Deep mutational scan, measured.
Amino acid sequence: GKMTGIVKWFNADKGFGFITPDDGSKDVFVHFSAIQNDGYKSLDEGQKVSFTIESGAKGPAAGNVTSL
């Protein structure tokens, strides 16, 4: 299901970062391709987001990332 969290950091040049889930679980990798907006796909440190957990090739990653 949907989770919420805070963006820990995001490197716009490399197109990835990490989200710290509100439930205290392990930080989740986020790739820019998972960001659900029409414009420039980037996130800001400290931004609140909702997301799902998808299993990627390198382990769990955030999917369906939407800013709240």
Rank of each mutant, 00 (worst) to 15 (best):
S42H: 10
G39I: 09
S25R: 09
T4I: 10
S55W: 14
F10R: 02
K14D: 09
Y40K: 14
T66I: 10
K41D: 07
P60A: 08
P21N: 01
F16M: 08
D23I: 08
G63Q: 15
T52I: 12
V30G: 01
G15N: 03
F29V: 05
K26T: 13
I19L: 08
K14A: 09
Q36W: 04
I35M: 05
K58V: 07
S33C: 03
V49C: 07
V49N: 00
V28L: 12
I35V: 11
W9I: 05
G39C: 09
D22W: 03
E54R: 14
I6T: 15
D38H: 14
S50M: 11
G63F: 10
N11Q: 06
G39Y: 08
T20A: 14
F10E: 02
I53C: 11
G46H: 04
T66R: 13
T4M: 08
F18A: 08
Q47A: 09
G1F: 08
N11W: 05
F51C: 02
V28Y: 04
Q47Y: 03
S67Q: 14
S42Y: 11
K58F: 07
G24Y: 06
N11G: 03
V28I: 13
F51W: 02
A61G: 06
V65C: 05
G46E: 03
E54K: 15
G5V: 00
I19Q: 01
S50F: 06
A57T: 10
S25P: 06
V65P: 02
F16K: 05
G1C: 13
S42M: 11
H31M: 02
T4L: 10
S25Y: 06
L43I: 07
K48W: 09
D13P: 15
T52W: 07
K48A: 13
G39Q: 10
S33G: 07
A12S: 13
G5K: 00
A61W: 12
P60S: 07
K26R: 14
F32V: 14
K2T: 11
D38W: 09
D27M: 03
P21D: 01
T4N: 09
A61E: 15
K14N: 05
K48L: 10
Q47G: 07
G17W: 00
T66Y: 09
G15V: 01
D23F: 06
I53D: 02
N11Y: 04
E54T: 15
F10M: 03
G56S: 13
A62L: 01
A12T: 13
G5H: 00
K41L: 07
K41E: 09
D23G: 10
K41F: 06
P21A: 04
P21Y: 01
F32R: 15
A62W: 02
M3Y: 11
S42P: 08
F29W: 10
E54M: 13
Q47H: 08
G56A: 10
G24D: 04
G59Q: 05
L68T: 10
K8A: 10
K14W: 13
W9T: 09
F29K: 08
D27N: 05
S42Q: 12
S67D: 11
G63L: 13
S42E: 10
Y40P: 12
K48G: 09
K2H: 04
V7R: 00
L68N: 07
K14V: 08
G1A: 13
N37T: 14
T20Y: 05
Y40T: 11
D22Y: 05
K41P: 10
V49M: 02
Y40F: 12
D13Q: 15
S42W: 07
K26W: 04
N37Y: 14
T66L: 10
E54C: 13
G15P: 00
D22E: 09
K8C: 04
G56F: 06
F10A: 02
K2Q: 07
F16C: 07
K26A: 13
A34N: 10
G56M: 08
G39T: 11
P60F: 09
G24W: 04
T52Y: 08
G17L: 02
Q36M: 14
K48F: 10
D22H: 07
I35Y: 03
K2M: 13
T4G: 03
S50P: 01
F16Q: 06
G56D: 09
A57K: 15
Q36N: 09
T66K: 14
S25G: 15
V30T: 04
I35C: 06
F32P: 04
G5M: 00
L68M: 12
Y40C: 12
M3T: 12
N64D: 15
F16H: 08
T20G: 08
G1L: 13
A34S: 13
N11S: 13
Y40L: 12
L68C: 10
Q36E: 13
T52Q: 09
D13E: 14
S33L: 04
I19F: 00
F51D: 02
A12K: 14
E54P: 02
S50C: 10
F29D: 04
F16D: 03
T20V: 15
S67F: 14
I53G: 03
